[in-house]
Each structure stands twice: as C-alpha cells, then as structure tokens.
Amino acid sequence: MAQVQQPPADAIRDEQLIEDVARGDRHAIEVLYDRYSSAVFGLALKTLRDREAAEEAVQEVFWRVWQRAKSFDRNRSFAPWLFGIAHNYCIDELRRRRARPQSVYEDDEHPILSGIADSTDVSEAALESEQRRIVQSALQQLPVEQRQALELAYFGGLTQQEIAARLGNPLGTIKTRMRLGLQKLRGILQGQYVPEQG
C-alpha cells in the first residue's frame, strides 16, 4: 500500500530505517521511535484507556520492532506493519485485562461504547496530521453502522460474535458491515494516496 504522506526530502525513509534496525542500528530505532511513538501511544491510550498500560505498550511495541525488524517484508510499507504490531499487542493486553476479575474494564465511567462511532467523535477531533485528516475523513464517509463495527473491533477489542451480541444484530450482519466498511475505506484511501516514491 502506498504511503499517505511523503516524508521531507531530507528525511530517511521508514523502510530504509527498518533495514538499518535489522542490521542492529540503534540510532535507526531511535529515529523511528521519535517519528511514531506519539501515534502508537495515542493508539494504546485509546485502546487500553490506562496511561501506565499505554506506557508499557509503547515500549513493548518498539521492542518488538527491534526484535522483528529482520522479518519486515520490504514489499510492504512500514507504518501499517508497525501499527499491526501495536494493535495486536493492545488487543491481547485488553483481553488479558478483561479476563482478570480484578481489572475493571467497562463500567459507568469507562463504557466501551464511549467515543466510538458517535456522530462527533471523528469530526471534532483535532486533526494534527495529513494522515489523520485523510483517514478520519475516509472513516466519516462510511455509514455509521460500518464505522461502529470497525471501531468496536479495532479499538474495543471485541470479536465479531461479541459485537453481534452487544448490538443485537446477527453475526452475518456484523461480518458484512466489516467487509463493506473496509472495502469502502480502502477504495477511498487509495483514491487519495500519494503514490510511493522509489
């Protein structure tokens, strides 16, 4: 997939940096950390809703980047790969915490549905980057039911069956919303991507 936004002309590309990381270049992992730690920390905060757990997450995610750099597929872009690692960690941690009886995941102050797929969540957020602006704009173009299904899974860590039960919809309906939502998101994003250079 093409990158949404090109780095400055004098910046080292992510894909070059991850190759350097694979060769044991500590400076390269530091540059990638500086470039993406805020996005990863933001994702962890939104998913885990616990600052201490999010701090653990950001360290663990970049530690896994350091360890797995050699397995990075050079035919893919770095950012989705990084966010895949971050998302997997956060979802695993979320489910682990939810399974622990002493861990309060969902209560009146922390409802799982809060901040997900309401009509203002996406549009009123401060749009600080071109990536965010494009992705949020694309997400806004989805029907609210599709957006809700995607966000409950991605940020809420719920399975398709759990979403179906929570929303009172058939499982097949949830699967269809996810498929159509992602297909439409892909179409919108591809239409707006700046083709990747070199």
Binding site: S38, Q59, R76, F83, A86, H87, V135, R186
Partner: peptide
C-alpha cells in the same frame, strides 16, 4: 486487508509518551 485496517490507527489522537518510555526502550536495546 491488514494494510488498510491498520490505517485506522491514525484515528487515535497522537499523544507524546513520557521521556522515560524512550529511555527504558533504549536501555533495553
């Protein structure tokens, strides 16, 4: 499909982690 899916991460508002996170990571590395 994963490449599209993980663009959703950009929906989360970026927040700078405290400096100790980077220190701990680099110490571990």
């Amino acid at each position: 499909v994963e490449d599209t899916t993980h663009m959703l991460a950009f929906v989360a508002t970026p927040v700078a982690p405290p400096p100790r996170c980077k220190l701990k990571l680099m110490e571990k590395v």
